[in-house]
Amino acid sequence: MSNFTKYVGGSIVVDSGVAVLGPDDNYLSIDIRGLKFSIGSANDRSLGAITIKSIARDHVMITINVWQGGDLTFKFQVGTISDRVMDLAVHLDVHTNHRVITYTFSQRGA
């Protein structure tokens, strides 16, 4: 873990990383100060490119749909921490036997 503060534009990076999910891994879960985010994928023509669903007051499930293909990169607001907006930038790479999720949580106006 770095002792240096990281920024994306004018936003401070709260958490970022990369995870490789194998065939038996349904999703990646990340806990940020008591807020839980689960990121997974689907291959379903009836879903939009990305689906965001509140599982509980402190748990959000984010599903990236690979059915349409194309660029699976998204950035959107996921909530607030300490009265500041928090965004998630996420990218999904799909391979034959695994998926790679790259993510960055950032807060505006840091």
Rank of each mutant, 00 (worst) to 15 (best):
V78N: 11
D58E: 14
W67V: 00
N43F: 13
K75R: 13
G48H: 09
N65H: 09
I55D: 11
V78I: 15
S54M: 14
F74H: 12
G69P: 08
G70C: 11
A49Q: 09
I64K: 08
G48E: 12
D44M: 03
I52F: 05
V66W: 00
S46T: 09
S46I: 00
S41E: 07
S41A: 14
K75C: 07
H59Y: 08
I62G: 01
A42R: 02
I62R: 03
I52T: 15
G70W: 06
I64E: 02
D44G: 05
T51K: 10
R45Y: 08
I52P: 03
W67A: 06
V78A: 14
F74L: 02
V60L: 15
T63P: 04
G69L: 11
L72A: 10
G69K: 13
G69I: 13
I64R: 01
V78K: 15
H59C: 00
L72R: 06
N43Y: 12
D71S: 12
S46A: 04
G69S: 13
G70H: 10
T63N: 08
D44P: 02
H59V: 04
I64V: 09
G70T: 13
R57K: 11
T73P: 00
A56V: 10
K53M: 07
F74P: 01
A42P: 00
G48Q: 14
Q68E: 10
V78G: 14
S54G: 09
N43L: 06
Q68D: 11
T73K: 11
D44K: 09
A49Y: 04
A49H: 05
S54Q: 15
A56P: 02
V78L: 15
G79D: 04
V78E: 10
I62N: 04
H59Q: 03
N65Q: 12
D58Y: 11
A49G: 12
R57E: 13
D44W: 03
G48R: 14
I64P: 01
G70R: 07
F74V: 05
I62Q: 05
V66H: 00
I62W: 02
T63D: 09
D58I: 05
T51V: 14
S54F: 05
